[in-house]
Structures are given as structure tokens and as C-alpha cells.
Design a protein around this nucleic acid. Structure first.
Lengths: 136, 136
DNA sequence: CGTGCACCTTCCCATCATGTCAAGGTCAAG
DNA sequence: CTTGACCTTGACATGATGGGAAGGTGCACG
């Protein structure tokens, strides 16, 4: 199986497959006489695993750990759960930051009349760091 | 005022100030005879403006537009509001994605006993793409 | 058999915002 | 004059991905 077919089958671009090989996330693919990379069912499983992990937002480092655990028959599920938990916490933290920014900005935006006049509390806040007078 | 003092005063690192100058986000700073950059009150205002914008998650491109509007006395507040609105939408979209991933992962995690046994629905899902049997 | 097209290879560069490090010049205080 | 803190430029790194160039390969069709 060619790299292009493997890419189509797993949803990981050929570009990224080569990249993952280069950083040692996946083992080096076999080669044809002409130097083309070849992939078997096992490789496809691994790539799909990586793809699903990326879809869940795991970093390459985390995926590296998950792959190791996956291939370790004597693994403890607690280890997997710990990685997932850490990732969940990271994502929740990001959401909190986003939420805060959205909140602030929506607040400012609500007080901006948004017409042709130049007066604008959003710019006001960015410029001075102070909220509008008499607000809230 | 030196770049270090400007950095301390605005919370933008000296490194980033030079960077912003290089990409044309801020005008080139004046120089002393020895080549040191010098900053005045106006520059500090701009840097603070940038800093607050970054704190609200605006991209450099958006900040570029905001700065232009800020310096345009004939601006329409609607333009500012539009940029802010677009940014809010982007952030909300990111939050939605994160929320989805957190949800999926928490679900999987809840069904992982997380002890020394190797059986793990998280890895299962990553490997097969299929949810556990009889779940939900 | 030749031609064309789709695919493969490697290598380099770009993103975005920021950090780190290195080698060297400058300033001010002791 | 030395010392230490600061400044300068420049190069390189991050993380995950995309883009493109230059050249080799495989296959189907005429």
C-alpha cells in the first residue's frame, strides 16, 4: 500500500505520515525497490489511532505515550486515564481562558453602538485599560 | 526611554517590541547615538494597546486593523465592533470544539476503571473508533 | 514502444507568537 | 578601569501543518 492510499484510508495526510516517521512517532515504513514507502494493516491501525487521538486534541507527546501504552499488553489502564485526565484539564483551562476573553469582549461590544460614529468603548478599553464610566 | 523600560512599563517583552517593529506593527523607534531604541509616551500607549489586545486574544492581523482604526479619528465604531464580533465568533467556535473533545474524552474516561488492569475503553476507542458495546 | 499523468521521493520554506542563546557594543556606578 | 546591567543583531527552536520545487516511478492508453 502506497503512502497516498494509506493517507486516504486513515485520514492522515501523506505529508504528516512522513513527518510522523521523521520524528519517530511511527516506525520507518518498508520501501519498494524504487524507494516508495509501503504500509500494511498494522501501520494503518497505528495511523488511524494517531488520527483519532489528534481529533481528540492530544499533543504529539501525549500520543507518543498513548501509543506506547497501546502496544504494551501489560499496561495499567490507570496510566491511560491519567494522560486523558491531564489532557481534559488542559482543555478545560483553555476553555476558561477563552470564556473570560469572550465575556469581556462581549461586554464591551454590547456597549458599542456600532454605527458610523467614531466613539467606541472597545477601543477605549484597549487604549486606556479602564472600563467605561458608570458601567455596571 | 529604553526598550527595557518600555517593556517593563507596558508588559510587552523587549523581544516582542523589536519583533513588532520588524513586522511593521509599530513604527520604527527612534535611536540614540549608540543605536539604542528610544520610546516616548505615545509609543508606550501603542504598546499597551497591543498588550491589551493580545490579552483579549486578538491576532496580530486583527490588532493591525484595530490600531489603524484607533488612530483614525474618522473611524466608524461599527468597523471596530465587526472585528470584535468576528473574534468573538472565532473564540466561541474554538470553545465548541474543545467542549466536544472534553465531552467525548470525559465520557470515555468515566468508563475506564483506571487501575492496574490493562483493559481500557479509551485505548479501545482510539484503536477502533467504536464506542464500547452497550454504552448509553 | 512512447507519451502523459498521477503519484512518489527529498528538501526547503512558511505559518504564529514567543523564547533562548550567543557574540559583541554601551552605559553608569564604584 | 572594571564590573554588571543593559542594549544591539542574528540565528535557531517551538508544534503541527501546509506549500512548493525538482526530479524519479508506475501505469494505462494509443
Amino acid at each position: 500500500m502506497n503512502i497516498g492510499e494509506a493517507a486516504d484510508a486513515t485520514g492522515v495526510t501523506a505529508k504528516m505520515i512522513r513527518h510522523y516517521e521523521q520524528i519517530g512517532l511511527i516506525r520507518e515504513a518498508g520501501r519498494t525497490g524504487a524507494g516508495y514507502r509501503t504500509y500494511g494493516p498494522k501501520d494503518l491501525s497505528t495511523l488511524s489511532f494517531i488520527r483519532r487521538s489528534r481529533d481528540l486534541g492530544f499533543s504529539i507527546a501525549q500520543i507518543r505515550d498513548l501509543l506506547t501504552l497501546w502496544q504494551d499488553r501489560a499496561r495499567a489502564s490507570g496510566d491511560v486515564k491519567r494522560i486523558a485526565g491531564a489532557h481534559i484539564d488542559e482543555m478545560k483551562q483553555k476553555m476558561r481562558l477563552l470564556q473570560e476573553m469572550v465575556h469581556t469582549l462581549e461586554h464591551l461590544s454590547a456597549h458599542c453602538h456600532g454605527d458610523d460614529r467614531p466613539d467606541c468603548p472597545i477601543l477605549e478599553q484597549l487604549a486606556t485599560g479602564k472600563a467605561e464610566d458608570g458601567c455596571c
